[in-house]
């Protein structure tokens, strides 16, 4: 989407005829003020903006000229507009009737335009709604799929656990397991020698059976 200024964006690329197609952008790509001044900028004193006197006078002159002209034009239109109705008739009732007729005409033009805009707006809204519904349905489908996958994963975990549970030590076979453990002590300690060779066991002496773990733990 076209971003015109930091806080204004154009909604439709093809229709920029009026300002109803603009949207103000509420986020800004800046640090929030609540973060405070950066440490490195804490003692920085920005120079005061300065404007030369002649530049100031020149801009003031241009600005004043512009405002005076606009004010005069506005005043001219007001005076002439009311003069039209005053000229229409001597009778104030008649003038009023002419004025109201003109107002009616203007209102009808305005209403016509509003009607046109309403149609465009409603069309856009209904389209947006359809898109929203489609997007929502898609989201629901995605969510369902996600839940299904999750359930499958859980089932898989449970199945594996069940399989493993056959080898668990229970109250029935605890004595046999203890016997087994005492009969086969294992020492995981080892030492490395400079050639990178592994000497297993805490009390192992090099030259003996290397792969046999020490019995003395």
């Amino acid at each position: 989407m076209l971003k015109l200024t930091p806080n204004l964006r154009l909604l439709s690329k093809h229709d920029a005829t009026n300002f109803t197609k603009f949207e103000s952008v509420r986020f800004r790509r800046r640090k929030p003020i609540s973060l405070g001044t950066a440490k490195s900028k804490l003692f920085k004193i920005p120079p005061r903006p300065s404007q030369s006197e002649e530049e100031k006078l020149e801009l003031q002159r241009l600005h004043n000229n512009y405002r005076t002209q606009m004010k005069s034009l506005r005043y001219y239109f007001i005076v002439n507009h009311s003069a039209e109705f005053a000229e229409a008739s001597e009778d104030p009732e008649e003038s009023r009737r002419v004025f109201e007729e003109d107002l009616k005409r203007c209102t009808s033009i305005n209403e016509k335009w509003n009607e046109k805009q309403r149609e465009i707006r409603e069309k856009a809204i209904s389209k947006q709604q359809e898109n929203d519904i489609i997007a929502a349905l898609e989201k629901v489908e995605l969510e369902k799929k996600k839940i299904k996958e999750m359930k499958e994963n859980i089932e898989e975990i449970v199945r594996k656990e069940k399989e493993q549970s056959k080898t668990f030590i229970t109250a029935e076979n605890i004595d046999a397991a203890i016997e087994q453990a005492l009969a086969n002590p294992v020492d995981y300690n080892f030492a490395l020698i400079s050639s990178g060779e592994k000497i297993l066991g805490r009390d192992n002496i090099p030259g003996r059976d290397k792969n046999k773990a020490s019995m003395n733990q």
Partner: peptide, 14 residues
């Protein structure tokens, strides 16, 4: 003078 264009500038230097 009051004109709708630029008019006579205060300082032509600008």
């Amino acid at each position: 003078e009051i004109v709708s264009g630029l008019g006579k500038p205060v300082s032509p230097r600008l």
